[in-house]
Write a protein that binds this DNA or RNA. Sequence first.
DNA 1: CGAACCCTTGACAGAAATCAACTAAGGTGG
DNA 2: CCACCTTAGTTGATTTCTGTCAAGGGTTCG
Lengths: 230, 230
Amino acid sequence: MRPNDLAEIRLLPLFSGMQQDCYDRLMLAAYVQNFPKGLTMIRQGDPADFLFILLEGQVELFASWDGHETTMAVLRPMGTFILAATIRDAPYLMSARTLERSRIMMIPSTNLRAIFQEDSAFAMAIIHELAGCYRAVVRHTKGLKLRTSRERIAAYLLRQAHLAGDLRSYFLPVEKRLLASYLGMTAENLSRALKSLEDDGLKVDGSRVILTDPEKLGLVAKLDVLIDGG
Amino acid sequence: MRPNDLAEIRLLPLFSGMQQDCYDRLMLAAYVQNFPKGLTMIRQGDPADFLFILLEGQVELFASWDGHETTMAVLRPMGTFILAATIRDAPYLMSARTLERSRIMMIPSTNLRAIFQEDSAFAMAIIHELAGCYRAVVRHTKGLKLRTSRERIAAYLLRQAHLAGDLRSYFLPVEKRLLASYLGMTAENLSRALKSLEDDGLKVDGSRVILTDPEKLGLVAKLDVLIDGG
DNA sequence: CGAACCCTTGACAGAAATCAACTAAGGTGG
DNA sequence: CCACCTTAGTTGATTTCTGTCAAGGGTTCG
């Protein structure tokens, strides 16, 4: 583990309130690993032996069933994943793979559980983090059940524009096939829907997104803080 | 609040490990209320002033957007709901209404947050509960994204049969329109799909479900512990 | 007894998945 | 440096699925 990793990780909301000795003991058991692009480091159904924290890179959470696969989330630093399985000492419900070369910290679940029983600030932080994860999935599910494909796409693209700093033009952070899967549709469907949104103030050229008329696109998306976040 | 309520609530996993004085203070701030059938006691977007605990009856969690509505979950005693919003002091993402006359305990969020900072056993229990809620939504979402309508229906009906004690015949616990919404389809679609499943070992007469050939239905459902639970 | 409401059914239109072919871009190895 | 291969993305044709609209039967409840 690099020396300045420790300092940076210490500042994460999850750890910033911890007692120093608890933090030290937790980090003693933890280690950091580099994964190449495209590596599946977690398979759904496996026992949750580690909590993962993404330090650098990009990770996809996905689920499989009966030969199908779907993207559940895309993670960026700094964030934890597979926290719930770790806590319940239950099998992972999702698999995880790197989308690019990534640096990931792994904390053994047993250490994690032992230490958050001692350090109440850490327990508080975990509660907060977990509640956030829960709300994120609920939002995603609401979008899937309440919106049509076109609406989900429009909402996603406007949301990304906002995250990029309210730009009118930006580049997609993920491949289109993955985006399609995340939004609950096929790649073909996404491709056609993007074209059809050209009448609604959108232009997409390769991975470049141009909001030619954000307001008009907003009429399609009908953004809602209870789905799309603040 | 009835005297034996307190005793029963004390045994809930969420409270059973609490220190007595913390429990007493929490209950002092809490109160129990009876709601008639069909009453919406929580509206999405409202501030999360209370944690709710369902003591008796049946409650639906649902979400709305742009005039549409969808059922997110159906709750039965004894269970908490809206825990995540309470913890984050954030607006509810879902609404809640009673499906039948229900008795519900309400704990002010501020008291809840204050007390789980003091009582680490309570904090542990909340972490555990939250992680369970998270995993439940993930499962639901996996089902929605990975399975077809017929598969979701078959899985749901087999799951209910199992919960009822592996019976070959039982009654639906909810109305079909609500079930359709929960499973992410229209009532008409559910009606037709149920009929089409008669070729796959299922018979439905009104709200009575008969598994004429559970194995054959199982081939449609392809039950999976990572979606349907154990 | 009437008014809702739930459920079902039919007809239709729209949306989405599937299958297949084709282009374009990126990486590999000779 | 080029030929080759792989992969992402697009497009078209087709089928399947799903939602919508409308009507009618049955039930419950006031």
